[in-house]
Design a protein around this nucleic acid. Structure first.
Length: 227
DNA sequence: TCTCGACCTGAC
DNA sequence: TCAGGTCGAG
């Protein structure tokens, strides 16, 4: 889960050799790791909760989706459920999720699950065995999944370690470090592609690992950072 | 290819 | 006002 079989100092050394600007982030957040989930379905639908949303609500929504799965145990009075399979999520009525304050994602989450089902239950897992670019392209064909979610799913669910999801935080870090002339510019499709391509080229197979530091730093400091 | 507005909710 | 965005129209 925490990739303890990976030597983080070795990875940091390799990243620093090609991207010395990462040094202060490694010093500040020493020990930060990128997690390795064993359940691709959970990560897939977890990220479907994230668009245009905040972490507190994302957690509530992910927990609610989990409640549709088989009960594993009760710990300190709290039910622990296995994350449900794709078919279960595909069958959740939109009204149920609306009632749980899912907003417009009440429609998109079951819809994406239905699209996945038509590709077969093993489809998500199968994307682990194709090149990152192919997996990303396939994920983007789902209505409701754009380039950012595709990158998140590729990295965190499928373990394509070169993926660099450009969310609002990585976008701010990218502009600050590499593209100051784009300060305050919104992310368009083409800018997204440029940033993601640039960061993958710069960090190579450690793109996912490196972006975690930039993400966490910006997450902590974006409100107070003055330029 | 870019720009906009819409889309749910709730914390700050 | 804005969150770990995406879609459709123009």
């Amino acid at each position: 889960m925490f990739r303890l079989d990976w030597d983080s100092s070795e990875i940091e050394t390799e990243i620093l050799a090609v991207a010395p600007e990462m040094a202060p982030y490694f010093e500040t957040f020493n020990g930060l790791r990128i997690m390795r989930s064993t359940c691709s379905t959970e990560i897939f639908f977890g990220f479907l909760c994230t668009p245009n949303n905040n972490l507190t609500r994302i957690l509530q929504m992910a927990r609610h989706l989990a409640s549709y799965g088989a009960e594993l145990a009760v710990v300190d009075g709290k039910r622990i459920n296995r994350f449900p399979d794709v078919a279960t999520i595909a069958a959740i009525p939109e009204a149920d999720l609306r009632a749980k304050a899912f907003g417009y994602r009440a429609a998109t989450i079951p819809s994406v699950a239905q699209q996945v089902l038509t590709r077969g239950e093993a489809w998500i897992e199968s994307l682990k065995n194709v090149p990152f670019e192919s997996a990303h392209a396939e994920l983007c064909k789902l209505k409701g999944v754009g380039p950012k979610l595709a990158d998140c799913i590729a990295l965190f669910a499928l373990h394509h370690m070169e993926a660099v999801p450009i969310d609002t935080h990585i976008w701010q870090a990218y502009v600050r470090l590499y593209r100051p002339e784009w300060k305050d510019k919104p992310i368009t499709d083409s800018r997204y592609r440029e940033a993601a391509t640039f960061l993958r080229a710069r960090f190579g197979n450690h793109g996912g690992w490196a972006q975690q530091y930039l993400f966490y730093d910006n997450m902590l400091n974006w409100r107070t950072r003055k330029e």
